[in-house]
Structure formats: C-alpha cells, structure tokens
Amino acid sequence: MNHPTNASTAAARTPFGALHHRPGEPLLLPNAWDHASAAVLADQGFPAIGTTSLGLAASAGLPDGAAATREETLRLARRLGRTGRYLLSVDLENGFSDDPGEVAALAVELAEAGVAGINLEDGRPDGSLAPVELHAAKITAIKAAAPDLFVNARTDAYWHALADPRPEADRRLDAYQLAGADGVFVPFLTDPAAIERLCGTLAVPLNVLYSPTGPTLPELAALGVARVSLGSLLYRVGLAAAVSTALAIQSGTPASGADALGFAAIQSLHADGGTEG
C-alpha cells in the first residue's frame, strides 16, 4: 500500500499539516458545532478544532450526510476560520456534490475563509460507498485548486459494516493516497492490530475516530496513529447531559449546576466571534 510520502506537499508543511507529523503525539481533534462550542474548546488550549457535520446538521434541524447543509457549513466556516485562536478543519460530508469541479470550488471558498483542512467522506446516505474513482477525482480536484488545504480522505468501509471491510478499505486508501490526500480517516476502526498494520503501510497520516470502548489516546499514539477525532461525541454527550439535568429537576432531584459555565463566561465568548463575510 505504500507510495511516495506526501510529507513534502504544501499542505504537510502548513502549521495544521505539521500537527500530523509528530511521532508518538497524535493530534487530538475535538469537534465543535457552533461558535460557542469552538470557543470553549479553544479556551482549553486545543491548537486545532474540527467541526462535526452531525452536530451542525442536527442544530439546524437538517439530516446529516445528505448534502443538506452546504450553506450552513460554509457559514460556520466563515465564522470560525478567521478567529486566529486555533486551526480549523471542516467536516465537508461528501463535498455536497458529485461534481469534482463543484467540490473543488467549495474547497477554495473554505480556504479563503481561513480553513486549514477538510474531511471528505465516501459514504452515502443509503449506506453505500461512492465509486472509488469519483472520490479520488474529488481529492485530485481539491488539491489542484487549493494545494495548501489539508485533505483528510475518509472511507466508511468499516462504518457501513461490510462483511470483510479490510480489502475494500485498503483499496480505497490506496486510491486516495495516489489522488493526493494528505491524510486518511477510517472511522469505526478500533482493532489495535488492524490500526498498527495500517500505520505501518500507509504513506500518509492515519486518523481514527475515538471510541469510548476502543484504545485510549496513549494506546493509539503507541500504535502510530497521527490524529484522533472526537466526531459527534461531544455534541451527543452535551445533549444527553441537558436531558438528564432537566429530567432530574423534574423528578425533584437537586441540580447544583456546579459544572455549568457562568453567564459572564458565556457572554465573553462573542469577543472572538469571527466574521461571516
């Protein structure tokens, strides 16, 4: 599976790309869904923050992965991309189009908005995978139009529960590397041996999705993982906490709110609100 490394590409030499080339120190990428969530994560010193397409879509009352949130994604990217407090990676679903030229044009808009990287997936809403040639063509078009943009090419071979996802994942990762991807993302890959094998054969950094039942961050670092994304986990935990608190109060259980952010802290978040222009 190895091919000449992309380490010398323009994107790999950017500050965001460099965060993927620190052996033994993977980039932990928390994912935000609006300005406030990104700002509170930035306050904790995370050097880079991603967006979660599920959190963004759900917040807007729209389905995830159905190409329904193009404008919402671009609007959020413009708001977050120029704060200067962190590097931003945007979850772009499948690029919101099957036309590589249209996807590349959107990538240019994101780069102009200050976005450092994107996540581009090959999964489709019906549970199938896009043709590998189509996804590779999107990657190539993006890299030609916005060479400094870090393209994290995601395959959903494991997510869609194929009977034997390994051969299909390998085939797709091979093609995406050749197409110019700066990194690859394999969500739902949690087996340590399989992760270690990929880290030893890929020519670009491997990104995995953190699983509460999978390897810990130090264990993933030891396996050679370059980036660990939290995906929609923070958004889903936040929703669950809100529901649990409301139900506890309804049942007569005291709720101190000791862990809640204060009004002043929330009000202060607008100071780095960026721009949508």
Score class of each variant (00 low, 15 high):
residue 90 V to E: 06
residue 90 V to C: 11
residue 91 D to I: 13
residue 91 D to S: 12
residue 91 D to Q: 14
residue 93 E to P: 08
residue 93 E to R: 11
residue 93 E to I: 12
residue 94 N to V: 09
residue 95 G to Q: 04
residue 97 S to L: 02
residue 98 D to R: 13
residue 98 D to F: 11
residue 98 D to W: 02
residue 98 D to V: 12
residue 98 D to I: 09
residue 99 D to Y: 02
residue 99 D to T: 13
residue 100 P to I: 12
residue 101 G to P: 08
residue 101 G to H: 09
residue 102 E to L: 11
residue 102 E to V: 08
residue 102 E to H: 06
residue 103 V to Q: 10
residue 103 V to H: 05
residue 104 A to S: 11
residue 105 A to N: 11
residue 105 A to P: 04
residue 105 A to M: 10
residue 109 E to M: 10
residue 109 E to G: 09
residue 109 E to Q: 15
residue 110 L to Q: 07
residue 110 L to H: 06
residue 112 E to Y: 07
residue 112 E to P: 04
residue 113 A to Y: 09
residue 113 A to R: 11
residue 114 G to Y: 07
residue 114 G to C: 08
residue 114 G to M: 07
residue 115 V to H: 09
residue 115 V to Y: 06
residue 117 G to W: 01
residue 117 G to F: 04
residue 119 N to G: 13
residue 119 N to C: 12
residue 120 L to Q: 08
residue 121 E to H: 12
residue 121 E to V: 14
residue 123 G to I: 03
residue 123 G to A: 15
residue 124 R to F: 00
residue 124 R to A: 06
residue 125 P to A: 09
residue 127 G to S: 05
residue 128 S to M: 01
residue 128 S to Q: 01
residue 128 S to L: 00
residue 129 L to T: 00
residue 129 L to E: 00
residue 129 L to R: 01
residue 129 L to P: 01
residue 131 P to M: 02
residue 131 P to T: 04
residue 131 P to C: 07
residue 132 V to N: 03
residue 132 V to I: 15
residue 132 V to R: 10
residue 133 E to T: 14
residue 133 E to D: 14
residue 134 L to Q: 14
residue 134 L to D: 07
residue 135 H to D: 01
residue 136 A to R: 03
residue 137 A to E: 14
residue 137 A to L: 11
residue 138 K to L: 09
residue 138 K to W: 02
residue 138 K to M: 10
residue 139 I to H: 02
residue 140 T to L: 11
residue 140 T to S: 15
residue 140 T to N: 06
residue 141 A to Q: 13
residue 141 A to D: 12
residue 141 A to G: 14
residue 142 I to N: 11
residue 142 I to Y: 05
residue 143 K to D: 04
residue 147 P to N: 10
residue 147 P to I: 05
residue 148 D to I: 01
residue 148 D to F: 02
residue 149 L to D: 02
residue 150 F to R: 03
residue 151 V to K: 03
residue 152 N to G: 10
residue 153 A to D: 00
residue 156 D to V: 10
residue 156 D to R: 08
residue 156 D to I: 07
residue 156 D to L: 07
residue 157 A to H: 01
residue 157 A to S: 15
residue 157 A to Y: 01
residue 158 Y to C: 03
residue 160 H to R: 13
residue 160 H to Q: 10
residue 160 H to M: 09
residue 160 H to K: 09
residue 160 H to L: 15
residue 162 L to H: 06
residue 162 L to W: 00
residue 163 A to G: 04
residue 163 A to K: 07
residue 164 D to G: 05
residue 164 D to C: 03
residue 165 P to N: 03
residue 166 R to D: 14
residue 166 R to S: 14
residue 167 P to M: 06
residue 168 E to C: 04
residue 168 E to I: 06
